[in-house]
Write a protein that binds this DNA or RNA. Structure first.
Lengths: 335, 335
DNA sequence: GACGCGCCTGTAAACGTTTTCAGTCAGGCA
DNA sequence: TGCCTGACTGAAAACGTTTACAGGCGCGTC
């Protein structure tokens, strides 16, 4: 049924070794023979079998990507960065999402054994140390947004703390003194760092902190909507809301509008991530810009290098800087 | 370096066949022997090599997914549907995005040969017939949003025409007579069908059609923004805008706001897809709901069945229905 | 006591490649 | 003529599995 290298060899009247040599340019072959083989190969539509190739070369040309159950544009942008970089180097991308706990991640690793040359793991919820611990040392891994210590692994993080700190100071600079925060899951590392940045900026400036100004959320628009409504009902009402990601900020915007509040006249709103849709909000959303697709690109480049050097290279820990993007959703406090 | 089945066999003092039998429950093995082997296997952290397994079983337990350069939530939702369904059946997902022309798609197919048990192909831009023509008949394929005729392949389409037609009639029902349309690429099948639905609904109701009311776009927020601005400047100004997808509708909303127009008082806006963020717009966006993740789920289920039956099953062509979701971005025409 | 039949186990082939090694052949040189 | 070299080619091993086949052993039956 399937056409193999043997079929090509037989049809061309040569041995499989010669066919292989022609197809990979891996040895001298007579001009006439080469042409004949090339002809037969394309006529028969021969394509080498990936499995057999991987088996012999110990290379799959595939990268595994383990992601949590991300939603929306963040996911899409990360994958875009990863895939385009991988593709440029002739690699495929095997994705696997929605891994809640350590066991699930380990199962995913096992299932991918021998199908993948390395992994990009994004797991902000879980102790990465434990995950990666029982991975064979020969298997390259790049940790994305993971909480991990030491210099044993390649890792790439967003400057969550710095970004949140800067945004909070920006709001304070606009004269806001009652600033609410919509948080993500406590156990999410990104979320925790952003919360820490918010708190520390308030402390640095000697502003009041109230528990009721910190609302729980889970990075979805729905949770932002809920939190936004609650904040609108607070008294005294905060004059600014900083959401730990854009999706929640968008949800909050929607809730504020329903509550009859104008943004930014009555209350300011800021987000985090600067997803593409942020600038098209009404009003356009002030946010902490993260180069999301670059996150994927960098992680992939690092991983490809690790694969190339068989994981013998010196590991590096990077932090991707963030920048403030000022749009119209935040105004000077006039209350 | 890597621990193979042979290592386990040696350590346990049995043959590889016996180990294989234990690990796959594929034959009778003495109780004592079985225990010993299981013990050794877990102590050595043995995991079968995927490549070798695929080679011998002719199964990769992996599905290939070829997508165009989708952006935003649509991509993310489709993948979510595909991956969750695949994962439930023990399959992995190999994604590959950004395929512009036939050659690129073919190259992707070739590269995946032997790494994948079947393909989900989404390619609204290109004649699918040509793509799939020179694929071996034994390779299962499900076509997603592809233009294709006949019953030779499994295919799954959105009811683009019906959805667009219904939305246009809805706008007409609200009293709008000058309805603008922001289109997608001409060569995009989805876009073309949505445009056709818009046109035919206007014709059915005997409404005027003007070339200047049909603005080009490319499914991005930026193009919707541009088109929205142009439409706002038209005179007489249309009283409603129907965008061929939500991203463009969101862009248009933003442009209208900048032009000082109120939605829906001055002008109504409708989108298509009903991406999750649509309901959180200001105002919440009326849209044609498409069960995006279900699109991925269904395609995957069909593909898995095709794999199961070695592509000998009867192919089916499905169309996913759409529903109108009425929110506040469209109002009765009061001009 | 011979035979057949289960159960358990091992040997070896097969999957489709790459690659090492050895071989053939022509031609140049002594 | 004999030898060496270099270009070309083929045979066979190797990768890590599964599986068809066969063998050994204990036990029951005639």
């Amino acid at each position: 049924m399937k056409v193999t290298i043997r079929d090509v060899a037989r049809e061309a009247g040569v041995s499989v070794a010669t066919v292989s040599r022609v197809l990979n340019d891996s040895g001298p072959v007579g001009d006439e023979t080469r042409k004949r083989i090339l002809g037969v190969a394309s006529r028969l539509r021969y394509t080498p079998d990936g499995a057999a190739l991987s088996l012999i070369t110990r290379r799959t040309n595939t990268l595994g990507v383990l992601l949590p159950d991300l939603h929306g544009e963040f996911f899409s942008e990360v994958i875009r960065g990863i895939d385009s970089t991988a593709q440029r180097s002739g690699y495929h991308v095997l994705v696997s999402r929605s891994h809640r706990d350590k066991d699930e991640i380990e199962a995913a690793f096992r299932a991918m054994r021998g199908r993948v040359d390395g992994h990009v793991v994004m797991s902000p919820e879980i102790d990465a140390q434990a995950i990666v611990a029982n991975l064979p040392a020969s298997c390259p891994v790049v940790l994305l947004n993971c909480v991990i210590e030491g210099t044993e692994f390649d890792s790439l993080n967003i400057d969550n703390f710095g970004g949140a700190h800067a945004m909070t100071r920006h709001l304070i600079g606009l004269g806001h003194e009652r600033i609410a925060f919509i948080a993500g899951h406590e156990r999410n590392h990104d979320a925790a760092e952003r919360l820490r940045g918010y708190r520390e900026a308030l402390m640095d400036e000697g502003l009041e902190q109230r528990a009721e100004w910190e609302r729980p959320g889970d990075f979805t628009e729905a949770s932002g909507f809920r939190a936004g409504g609650e904040i609108a009902a607070l008294s005294p009402r905060p004059t600014a809301i900083f959401a730990a990601n854009d999706s929640m900020a968008i949800g909050a915007l929607s809730a504020l509008r329903e509550a009859g509040l104008r943004v930014p006249e009555d209350i300011s709103v800021a987000g985090f991530d600067d997803i593409p849709v942020a600038r098209y909000m009404s009003p356009p959303l002030t946010s902490v810009h993260v180069a999301i697709s670059e996150l994927g690109e960098r992680a992939t480049r690092t991983l490809l290098q690790a694969v190339e050097e068989k994981n013998q290279h010196v590991k590096c820990q990077e932090t991707l800087p963030t920048t403030l993007v000022i749009r119209q959703s935040c105004g000077r406090n006039i209350h």
